[in-house]
Write a protein that binds this DNA or RNA. Structure first.
Lengths: 133, 133
DNA sequence: TATTTATTTGAGAATTATTTGCAAATAGCT
DNA sequence: AGCTATTTGCAAATAATTCTCAAATAAATA
């Protein structure tokens, strides 16, 4: 019953993403992995994130301040994004309007694969910091 | 009375963006401007887009396939984005859930500035092309 | 266990979008 | 014309991401 040694680093990357709710970038994820796997290169992180994404195992929220951000939660959910510090918060209490997909498909004539609802603004921390300053 | 000559290129860039519903990138906009203003440099396009954005005169939809896209319509509205060719379609028939902003503000504790609702998929053209191919 | 074969990786170069520094051009004002 | 502030073009700088390729690793087979 020996555990396979294949994909060791690949799995480390996925586990790491699954253990955080921070919506990290490739670079941040690479830094988070340093303690356990100081020998993983940044290129490997990028490569595997692209792979996981192509398999639908993870999702990208798109770029925040020019840097792509990832998450392991592939269920549709709402985001609050701080345009100041780049923090991303999941809002699982709210629903994305999945039910509108059919309507969008018929309006556009295309095929709809997903739906993203996000709110942007300034997070509590950044508001506090600027108030103090 | 005499028309001011200041901001000639700046205005050309804004007009050009206002005259299209294509949600162009800086580079595309630069190409669109070539006929009328072959002497506008790409850096000027970038610079002025950043300026307009900072003034709330235009909006960015974020990056599509790694390239930032702009629009002159700053009213909240829904987008359909083709992940294949990068085409972006406005869906003025649908409403963005602006009314949820207060709820997001209280859930996050931050300040909510805007709300984006977008659907991604494959547009009609790309579906047709792939069917024929 | 040695051999073969396919996959994954690290390091750094390459690519690409965007930004910046700076001198020249332009516009308004006197 | 002369002065000042703004805008621009160009080329160089920057930064995120992708690519190349040889080396490392793992599985399969002998």
């Amino acid at each position: 019953m020996g555990e396979t040694k294949q994909f060791r680093k690949r799995n480390a990357i996925l586990s790491c993403l699954r253990c955080t709710d921070q919506h990290p970038s490739a670079e941040t994820l690479h830094q988070m992995l340093q303690q356990e796997h100081p020998d993983i290169s940044l290129a490997t992180v990028y490569r595997n994130l692209a792979f996981f994404k192509s398999q639908g195992m993870i999702a990208s929220l798109g770029a925040v301040n020019g840097v792509e951000r990832f998450e392991a939660n592939v269920q549709p959910h709402v985001h609050f994004i701080c345009g100041c510090c780049g923090a991303v918060l999941d809002l699982p209490q709210m629903e994305t309007p999945e039910s509108l997909r059919d309507r969008v498909a018929s309006l556009s004539g295309g095929r709809v694969d997903s739906c993203q609802l996000s709110f942007t603004g300034i997070c509590q921390d950044c508001l506090d910091k600027n108030a103090t300053a």
